[in-house]
Amino acid sequence: MSRAAPGPEDRHAHSPGAEGGAACADTVVDAARPAGRVLAALAGFREPVVWILLAIAFFTAISGKPVDGVLMLVVAVGLAWDAGRRALRHADAAGTAGAQAWPGRLRGGRRRIIVVGALLAGAAVYAGVVGSFSRYSWPVTACIIGLGTVVVLIGWHGPVRDRPAGGRLPVAGTLAWVAVLVAGCLWELGALLQQPSLTTDSYSHPTISTLTDPVLATSPGRAVVLLGWLALGWYLVER
C-alpha cells in the first residue's frame, strides 16, 4: 500500500490523518487485476458525499424539480467516477504525480484588489439582472445553472490558494455542529412530509421555501437573496 504525492486536486497541505481514512476514496488497489480495476472504479461510491448527493437528487426529483434532480445525479456520478479514476491513477503511477501551482492563482495585492472589484461589480450586475427575471423561468434557470457549473468546476480543480492543513477538529464540538445541522434538516424534512403533497405548500407546516416565498416574490427581494447566495459561493470557493 502506498500513496501518491498530492496532485493538483489536493492542494491543501497534508498532515497525518488529515484526509481521514474513511473519507478518502483514493484507496490504492492492485490495478493490474481486472477485479482491482472494478473495485477502484467503484471506490467513489464509498464516499458519503456521493450518497448524500444521490439522496438529494432523488428527493429533489420526486418533489417536482426534475432538472435539479438530474443535475445532482450527474454530479454525484461524476464525482464517484472521478474518485475511482484517481484511485486507478494512484495505483498505476504511485509516486509520479507532483504538486503543481494552479495557473490562475492570484498573487500581488494590487491585482487582487482589481479582481475583487471586478467580481463585486459582476456580482451586483448578476444579482440585478437575474433578480429581474421571474422565478422558475428558463432565463433564471440558465443563469443559475451556468454560474453553479462554473463554481463547481473551479472547486473540482482544487482550492484557489494554498491553505494550512490545520489540526484535528475537537470531536465534541464537531458533533455539536452535526447535531444542530442535522436537527435543522430533519425539522425541514418533517415539515415537507407533513404537506398535503410534496409539491403542495402547507400553511400549518411551512418549509423554508414556503417561508421565503414572500421575499422572493419581488424583484428587489430576489436580487438581495441572490447577492447573499453569491457571497456564500465566493466564501466557499475561497476555502
Binding site: E19, E47, I56, D68, L79, I144, V151, G233
Partner: peptide, 29 residues
C-alpha cells in the same frame, strides 16, 4: 468546519454542489 470538509476533492465539490443546489432550489425550474 467547512475548511476541513472541503479539504478533499469530494468534500469540496459536495459543499459547492450544495451551494449550487440552494440557488437551483429557490430560483430555477
Amino acid at each position: 468546519l467547512l475548511t476541513r470538509a472541503m479539504r478533499s476533492r469530494t468534500g469540496r465539490v459536495g459543499v459547492l454542489v450544495a451551494w449550487a443546489w440552494i440557488g437551483l432550489h429557490f430560483f430555477a425550474r
